[in-house]
Simulated assay, not measured.
Amino acid sequence: MTSAAAKRRLGVLISGRGSNMLALAAAAAEPGFPAEIACVIANKADAAGLGLATARGIPAIAVAHRDYPDKVAFEQAMTAELEARGVELVCLAGFMRLLSPWFIDRWRDRLINIHPSLLPAYKGLDTHARALADGVRIAGCTVHYVRAEVDTGPIVAQAAVPVLPGDTPDSLAARILTAEHRLYSYAVAMIATGAAVVHGDRVDIDPARAGDGTARLFAPALPAL
């Protein structure tokens, strides 16, 4: 079991309700999870996730981007809050602001994001509609380290879900979101325990410490042997 003193301290950035933040909070509440949420920061004072974090005993801070003259001043204020709480890993969880190269460099290899596609496919917005328009059979989500170019950076972990007949962007999004909630905490745990280590443009995974990675999802289902 991981001791409380050894847990990796997380800072979670949100803009709204922060469902992935809540999933991380639930994981962090489990005995032995190797990370804890040191703070949740929202760029909107009325973000619903602030109250949800507070109800769980997590320090919740509003750093409203509109209160600052420019992006760097806003990001410097966020950085001050993160550093004051000893944050070691910053997790973007529905944070709807593009970050500047300054912030990304400041937190290089300590800043991760979850994106609702199997990167490098479908970077950017409208991922589910674009995937459906292309007729893909597998969709999913990706946890990756953040780099200056949007939705790039070394991949930590991915989860795949089937695209089903009759899917809409909303139904596919809901299925992927369920996978996101499981994947994010898994990726954070791998980083916190050293099972996943970033080196330049790649993440090296220690198979002995990453758990069983043999399960695979195929759609349509493969025939039984």
Rank of each mutant, 00 (worst) to 15 (best):
I176M: 15
Y184L: 11
R216P: 03
L172Q: 12
C91Q: 07
A53G: 06
A35D: 00
N43L: 08
P220V: 05
V146P: 07
R108P: 08
A139R: 03
E180W: 13
D201N: 14
A196F: 11
Y186S: 13
T193L: 13
A47L: 04
A29R: 07
A60P: 01
G11R: 08
T152G: 15
A73V: 00
L24S: 05
E83H: 02
G153Q: 05
A45P: 13
W102R: 01
A195S: 10
D70P: 07
R97G: 01
I155F: 13
E180T: 12
S171C: 02
D46E: 14
T178S: 13
A174W: 14
E83T: 09
L92Q: 03
R216K: 10
P154E: 14
L222R: 01
A26T: 14
L132Q: 07
D212C: 09
W107V: 03
D109R: 08
V203T: 11
R9G: 12
A173P: 00
D170P: 02
C91K: 03
L13T: 02
G16I: 00
V90I: 06
A224L: 11
E83V: 15
V146L: 03
K71M: 13
D201I: 00
D201R: 15
L82N: 03
C141V: 06
D167P: 09
V146S: 04
T2E: 09
T79Y: 02
V87R: 00
L89H: 10
A173R: 06
E88K: 10
A80Q: 06
L89K: 01
V203P: 08
V63C: 04
D105C: 05
F74S: 00
L13R: 07
S185L: 10
A6Y: 09
L99W: 02
L119S: 02
Q158L: 05
V143T: 14
R106F: 12
A62S: 13
A196W: 11
G16A: 08
G51Y: 07
F33M: 15
Y186W: 13
S171L: 02
D109K: 04
E75Q: 00
